[in-house]
């Protein structure tokens, strides 16, 4: 919390936080930590966690930029995945209480920290980088503003994991279904006028699980802290695959 605004009053909020330290706990438990927050300004959930950590130094969570662009602090906030640093307490706190748990579906390392290996393994499978066959020109490759606009809503992904860990299809098959984040990245490169690997990208997705396990539940869309739409990206890839066959 970076404030120079004078604090007038404080109020109490109880954070109910998922705790687990593999070094000492046999199983996870919920711990209530009461904190005082200023009454005259709206803190973010991350600010509340930082205050809680001052009381309970062993409390562990990831955080970095504090402004919703680095994707570190994805977590389950009162039942919904989101970024702690851009979720205001005024939205999240219900009856003076806030329940914080790790993102579901991935193994918990400690407290609010999950092991994101499966998430990143799936990302790497879609070859998330530009593939070109022609030699690069001396200057930039040309791209029209309209072609560039195709990447809006795709390139902004921050890899926080909120979407994939809110997706039932990903929970069931985290090793086979690529998940909304990876598929959004796949479409980001298929949609890029500069990329020359559309066919091989589509080949890689053309099996029963990688893409087709998406059932359009749209949890990904409702939780994405950047307002992106992975379901639409998935349906765009689906259309390409179908058109290719017909």
């Amino acid at each position: 919390m970076n404030t120079t605004i004078p604090l007038e009053e404080v109020k109490n909020v109880t954070l109910s936080i998922y705790r687990f330290d593999p070094g000492k706990d046999k199983k996870a438990y919920m711990q209530d930590i009461e904190i005082e927050v200023p009454a005259n300004m709206d803190l973010m959930v991350l600010d509340a966690l930082l205050l809680a950590k001052k009381k309970e130094t062993s409390l562990s969570f990831r955080r970095s930029c504090g402004e919703g662009v680095c994707g570190s602090d994805g977590m389950n906030i009162n039942g919904k995945n989101g970024l702690a640093c851009v979720t205001p307490l005024s939205e999240a706190v219900k009856r003076n209480k806030l329940v914080l748990k790790p993102m579901p579906g991935l193994p918990v390392i400690r407290d609010l920290i999950v092991d994101m290996k499966q998430f990143f393994d799936q990302l790497e499978k879609v070859k998330p980088y530009l593939i070109t066959k022609d030699e690069a020109p001396e200057q930039e490759r040309k791209q029209s503003p309209e072609e560039r606009e195709e990447l809006d809503g795709l390139y902004e992904c921050i890899l926080c994991g909120c979407c994939s860990t809110a997706c039932p299809s990903f929970w069931w098959n985290p090793d086979k279904f690529l998940g909304p984040a990876a598929l959004l990245q796949s479409w980001r490169f298929i949609a890029d006028s500069r990329d020359q690997a559309t066919e091989e990208r589509l080949d890689d997705l053309d099996d029963a699980f990688s893409l087709y396990r998406c059932h359009g539940i749209m949890n990904c869309v409702s939780v994405c802290p950047k307002g992106l739409n992975p379901t639409e990206a998935i349906s765009n890839i689906r259309k390409k695959l179908i058109n290719r066959k017909s």
């Binding site: 980088y129 530009l130 070109t132 690069a136 930039e140 490759r141 791209q143 029209s144 503003p145 072609e147 560039r148 990447l151 390139y155 490169f189 890029d192 500069r194 990329d195």
Partner: peptide
Amino acid sequence: HMGMPFSR
């Protein structure tokens, strides 16, 4: 060339 999505 690496694919950075510059504005155009």
